[in-house]
Computed example of a mutant assay.
Amino acid sequence: MNTPKTEWPSSLGDDELEELDQYLRGHVGEGDLLLDGVHGLLSALAVGPMQVLPEEWLPEVLHEPFTDESEGNRVLALLAKLNDSISAELDVDAYEPILGEVDTETGPVLSAAGWCEGFSRGIDLRAGLWEKRLADDPQLMEMLGPVMALAVDEGILSADAEFEKLSDEEYDECLAQVPGVLNAVNHYWNEHPVTEVEIEAAVRPAEEKDLQATPPRQRSGHWVH
């Protein structure tokens, strides 16, 4: 669908994206997400099986209290706008992932590493539901193929079998498929919503883990354990 630009959703402008990017870069610690990672995280939540409220995903993005109230309100407003824009963009086929850049001998090239890391963490926030459905329904696994290929290629996920590095052409092809993948996954969960049984099965282990006061699990790099 070719949607006229005047009908596109109210996404962040370049100045707003730059402002949010600069804030995140100025408050980043080891392993923290930058703008591309935040976009990946919010994208996973937008197309996922259940709503994830801001109080649950904001700790994945912000790691220290604001020292300036007005700055804090501004950052939260930008994050809210970024979050809202993703579903709106998907609705009109205007979604594009926010990607990082890496320097190579021939100049900077686009990298999906940060976006894939964020997407993986978004899935982790509803890991039980994703893992159960991915194990039960190969259709969902197949849909996610291009994103998983990028994530394995970037070392975000571990492959159970030997994985040959993507060629530049294959990498670009997978990147081009990301918007279609997200649309397909979004439709999948709308057409095959989670059941009460799945929710109970996902919630119970999390509650038991809280009761045992176990330390947070280290990310293994797998979506399916």
Results as ranks from 00 to 15, higher is better:
residue 126 R to W: 03
residue 197 V to K: 15
residue 157 L to I: 06
residue 142 E to M: 11
residue 174 C to K: 11
residue 180 G to N: 11
residue 2 N to D: 13
residue 189 W to M: 11
residue 169 E to V: 11
residue 45 L to I: 12
residue 102 V to N: 09
residue 19 E to S: 14
residue 121 R to Q: 14
residue 130 W to T: 00
residue 23 Y to W: 14
residue 220 S to C: 04
residue 192 H to L: 11
residue 169 E to C: 07
residue 136 D to L: 09
residue 118 G to N: 02
residue 20 L to G: 00
residue 118 G to Q: 05
residue 167 S to K: 08
residue 224 V to M: 10
residue 157 L to G: 06
residue 191 E to I: 05
residue 140 L to C: 08
residue 207 E to A: 11
residue 15 D to G: 05
residue 134 L to W: 10
residue 35 L to K: 03
residue 68 D to R: 05
residue 44 A to Q: 07
residue 69 E to H: 11
residue 209 K to M: 11
residue 174 C to Q: 10
residue 144 L to E: 07
residue 92 V to T: 04
residue 103 D to A: 15
residue 79 L to K: 02
residue 212 Q to T: 13
residue 32 D to V: 03
residue 205 P to H: 11
residue 123 I to E: 00
residue 44 A to E: 06
residue 41 L to K: 04
residue 69 E to N: 09
residue 75 V to F: 08
residue 53 L to Y: 06
residue 218 Q to C: 04
residue 213 A to V: 13
residue 87 S to E: 05
residue 24 L to W: 07
residue 164 E to N: 13
residue 214 T to S: 09
residue 63 H to A: 01
residue 169 E to G: 08
residue 32 D to A: 04
residue 27 H to E: 09
residue 224 V to E: 12
residue 12 L to F: 06
residue 161 A to W: 10
residue 43 S to A: 10
residue 109 V to G: 12
residue 140 L to E: 11
residue 155 G to K: 05
residue 151 A to Y: 07
residue 72 G to D: 11
residue 158 S to T: 15
residue 64 E to C: 09
residue 46 A to F: 07
residue 80 A to S: 14
residue 192 H to W: 02
residue 65 P to V: 02
residue 42 L to R: 01
residue 223 W to Y: 14
residue 92 V to Q: 06
residue 178 V to L: 07
residue 115 W to V: 12
residue 183 N to L: 14
residue 205 P to V: 14
residue 182 L to A: 03
residue 61 V to L: 02
residue 224 V to D: 08
residue 179 P to S: 10
residue 105 E to P: 00
residue 190 N to Y: 05
residue 99 L to Y: 03
residue 99 L to R: 02
residue 202 A to F: 00
residue 109 V to S: 09
residue 176 A to N: 08
residue 60 E to V: 05
residue 60 E to N: 06
residue 120 S to A: 06
residue 167 S to P: 03
residue 120 S to I: 05
residue 88 A to Q: 14
residue 186 N to L: 13
residue 118 G to V: 06
residue 76 L to E: 06
residue 92 V to P: 01
residue 175 L to R: 00
residue 214 T to K: 13
residue 146 P to I: 06
residue 206 A to D: 09
residue 209 K to D: 05
residue 148 M to Y: 04
residue 127 A to P: 02
residue 138 P to E: 05
residue 5 K to H: 09
residue 51 Q to C: 10
residue 88 A to G: 03
residue 78 L to Q: 10
residue 76 L to F: 03
residue 84 D to I: 04
residue 91 D to W: 00
residue 204 R to Q: 15
residue 135 A to W: 04
residue 128 G to M: 04
residue 156 I to P: 00
residue 190 N to R: 08
residue 4 P to K: 00
residue 207 E to F: 12
residue 38 V to N: 02
residue 37 G to I: 01
residue 143 M to H: 14
residue 192 H to R: 08
residue 48 G to T: 02
residue 215 P to R: 10
residue 171 Y to T: 10
residue 64 E to F: 04
residue 157 L to R: 07
residue 164 E to W: 13
residue 214 T to H: 09
residue 140 L to V: 06
residue 99 L to V: 04
residue 96 E to G: 08
residue 164 E to L: 15
